[in-house]
Computed example of a mutant assay.
Amino acid sequence: MSHRRALVIGASRGLGLVLAGELAHRGWEVIATTRRESAELNALPLAVEPLELTSPEQLAVLRERLEGRPLDLLFVNAAIDRGNLAIDEVPEAMFTEVMITNALSPLRALEALRDLVAPGGTVAVMSSEQGSVSRNTEPGYELYKASKAALNQLMRSYATRHAADGRTKLLIDPGHNRTRLGGPDAPLDPRESIPAVVDVLEAQAGTPGLRFLDRHGDVVPW
Score class of each variant (00 low, 15 high):
4 R>E: 12
6 A>R: 00
7 L>G: 00
11 A>M: 07
13 R>W: 12
19 L>P: 00
20 A>W: 01
20 A>C: 06
21 G>I: 02
22 E>I: 06
23 L>H: 06
23 L>I: 08
23 L>Y: 06
25 H>E: 15
27 G>F: 15
27 G>P: 05
27 G>C: 08
28 W>V: 01
29 E>N: 10
29 E>S: 14
30 V>I: 13
32 A>F: 05
38 S>Y: 10
39 A>L: 12
42 N>Y: 06
45 P>R: 08
45 P>K: 08
51 L>Y: 06
52 E>I: 09
53 L>W: 03
55 S>C: 14
55 S>H: 09
55 S>N: 07
59 L>T: 03
59 L>Q: 12
60 A>R: 13
61 V>C: 07
62 L>A: 05
63 R>S: 11
65 R>E: 12
67 E>G: 12
68 G>P: 05
68 G>A: 09
71 L>A: 01
73 L>A: 07
73 L>V: 09
73 L>Q: 00
74 L>F: 12
76 V>Y: 06
76 V>C: 11
80 I>K: 02
80 I>T: 14
83 G>H: 10
83 G>S: 11
85 L>T: 04
89 E>T: 09
90 V>T: 09
93 A>T: 14
94 M>I: 15
94 M>Q: 13
99 M>C: 13
100 I>N: 13
100 I>M: 14
100 I>P: 01
102 N>P: 03
102 N>A: 07
107 L>G: 03
107 L>Q: 11
110 L>E: 00
110 L>P: 01
114 R>P: 01
122 T>N: 06
122 T>L: 13
123 V>M: 15
124 A>N: 07
126 M>E: 10
128 S>H: 05
128 S>P: 02
131 G>N: 05
134 S>R: 14
134 S>E: 14
140 G>M: 09
141 Y>A: 11
144 Y>T: 03
145 K>W: 08
146 A>T: 13
148 K>E: 12
149 A>S: 15
153 Q>A: 14
155 M>D: 02
155 M>S: 08
156 R>F: 11
157 S>Q: 14
161 R>H: 15
164 A>G: 11
167 R>H: 12
168 T>D: 03
170 L>Q: 01
170 L>K: 03
171 L>H: 01
172 I>G: 00
174 P>M: 06
174 P>Y: 04
178 R>V: 04
179 T>L: 07
179 T>W: 05
182 G>Q: 04
183 G>L: 13
186 A>M: 10
188 L>P: 00
188 L>T: 02
188 L>E: 13
195 P>Q: 11
202 E>D: 13
202 E>V: 11
203 A>T: 14
207 T>M: 13
207 T>Y: 07
208 P>V: 07
209 G>I: 08
214 D>G: 04
216 H>E: 15
216 H>G: 15
218 D>T: 07
219 V>Q: 12
219 V>S: 13
